[in-house]
């Protein structure tokens, strides 16, 4: 990935822990998951987080694949999950 402003502002999954609690009703930062593209495994907190946009994007730190997208709109929360978890990803609680 190019060293650009997105890189400078990049955080990690830990930074969106509160947002995930708000949407899914639980702390998911320690959730263990696998990247479906490269097979890299790790806790959600270790994913790269891009939060300076209308939505939030979590990417694989190994291959840069987009693993989770969340957008809050006036009609509710939209999200798209690609990371693979043993017991599935929780459903939004609101």
């Amino acid at each position: 990935m190019a060293i650009d402003m997105n890189w400078e502002l990049m955080l990690d999954g830990n930074a969106v822990g509160g947002l995930l609690i708000e949407i899914f009703g639980q702390d998911l930062t320690a959730l263990w998951s696998t990247c479906p593209d490269c097979g890299r495994q790790g806790e959600l907190a270790t994913l790269r987080a891009f939060t300076h946009a209308p939505g939030v994007v979590l990417r694989c730190p190994a291959c840069d694949a987009v693993l989770l997208r969340i957008a809050k709109t006036t009609r509710g929360v939209r999200y798209d999950v690609r990371l693979v978890t043993k017991d599935g990803f929780p459903q939004a609680s609101r």
Partner: peptide, 9 residues
Amino acid sequence: VRGPIGGYF
């Protein structure tokens, strides 16, 4: 406020 948050670090 909301927290405490985080189970990894």
